[in-house]
Computed example of a mutant assay.
Amino acid sequence: MDARALAALAANPGCRRRALLDAAGVDKAAVARVLGNPAPFGQSQFAFVRGHAFEARVKAEGCAELLRLLGAPEGTRAVLPDLSAPGPEGRLARTRLALKEATAAGRWTLLDHPLLALEVADSPVHLEPDVIAVRPDGSWTVVEVKSFPILDGSADSVKVGAAARQAAVYVLALERLGFGTPEHRVLLVCPKDFSNLPAAEFVDIRKQLSVTRRQLARLTRIEEIAASLPEGTTFDLRLADDGRTATRPPAELADAVDRLPAAYAPECLASCELSFHCREQARACGAVEVLGRGVRGELGALTTVEQVLAAALGTRDGASGDSDGEEPSRDVADHVDLGDLTDPGVAALRRAQALRAEALGCR
């Protein structure tokens, strides 16, 4: 699990499917391809190379350009401590020591790709921000270097929001260290217009911090999710059979994935490789989640499209007003009284249907 995955998971903490697959290091993109629902997004090799080249430019010549973007006086030179150490535990200890020394030194220090740790659902997660800048006053600023451009002084709001949520995870990890003062604003560095020249903007992440802190605290422990699965469940794409490795049948893999409850929402399409598979499942069972979290919240006890149509049309089966009145499925009948106009969801749908009929000249 990394900061990007944690930020996406914090935005949808009820999704046990993503929580366990990310914690287990499962390649969700490969799983989606086998299931026949690949997500048509991801970073191209060209964008990957361009991003690395841009980050190298930002950090060139002792990070002189980065210091300027941080607001350091002209001519300032920063300390760049060596953070290399054997294994993640060694890197964690080296980062912690470097932060302590830099905080007490009273000068500019830049930690290039330090390693932090954050406990999520009782499982440790290692995080690697691009840079942590320690100012002479001892405060810490997280720096995120992104390859999407700042055009005419502004960047794509969706991408900025995703970067802010990712940075919030880093700040949470810094807060857990118990010393030092991480700032609640981060420096977002991006290419200016269509050039490779760095431009930067400070982003206030207090809202993202609050939401991420609350959502991560709600996550179910990974062990509890794993314990709910039948023994022997695996998400491996290839299985050994009589000493030979064979490609796993898609139906068998789908059965394993579907044992994990998903919490699909349209927002998943921008951040989760399995989102198209989950959307197909939600559509197949008529779940109102496919209409968005806002609509789902407004509908209350109405959980399926069948229920919504029945409540709106004043029928028992969700068909037209000329329905023969056949009984709906047991799920529809058991969850809500579709004729109860005291239910806010039913009343709002009935009113909306009446307005629609009036506007279309229907009776």
Results as ranks from 00 to 15, higher is better:
V142Y: 00
R238S: 09
A173N: 04
G180L: 11
T233M: 14
Q208K: 07
Y264H: 08
A227K: 07
C272P: 00
V134F: 12
S147E: 10
R213Y: 03
R206I: 01
F194W: 14
D241N: 06
L172A: 12
V134G: 03
V160A: 04
V145S: 02
L260T: 04
E201M: 07
Q166T: 05
Y264G: 00
D152K: 10
D137M: 03
L239I: 13
F235H: 05
A163Y: 00
A270G: 07
A167T: 09
T245K: 05
G161R: 15
D236R: 12
E223T: 11
P249M: 06
S139M: 03
E224F: 01
A162G: 01
E144S: 12
R213F: 03
A246L: 15
A251V: 14
Q166F: 04
V171E: 00
V160T: 10
A226P: 08
S157D: 11
Q208T: 08
P230Q: 13
R214I: 03
C268D: 14
E224N: 12
R221L: 09
D152G: 04
S271E: 15
D204K: 10
V142S: 04
P198D: 10
T245A: 09
D255W: 09
V203W: 01
G161S: 13
D255M: 12
Q166H: 06
T181N: 10
T247L: 15
P191G: 12
S157Q: 15
A265I: 00
A246V: 15
A263P: 06
S139Q: 08
L172C: 06
T245D: 06
L188A: 05
S147Y: 04
A254F: 02
P250M: 11
T181I: 08
D242T: 03
A168W: 00
E252Y: 04
A254C: 09
D130F: 08
F148V: 02
L239H: 03
A200I: 07
P136G: 09
L219T: 05
E252I: 08
R221I: 06
A199Y: 00
D242P: 00
E201C: 11
D156Q: 09
I150E: 14
K159A: 08
V169F: 04
D152C: 06
A256W: 06
G153I: 01
G243Q: 06
S154F: 06
L151F: 10
L260V: 13
R185V: 03
P261D: 12
V171A: 05
R176G: 09
R213S: 10
S157W: 15
A173L: 09
V134D: 03
A270I: 01
A133M: 13
E201L: 08
P191M: 10
R185K: 11
D130A: 12
G180P: 06
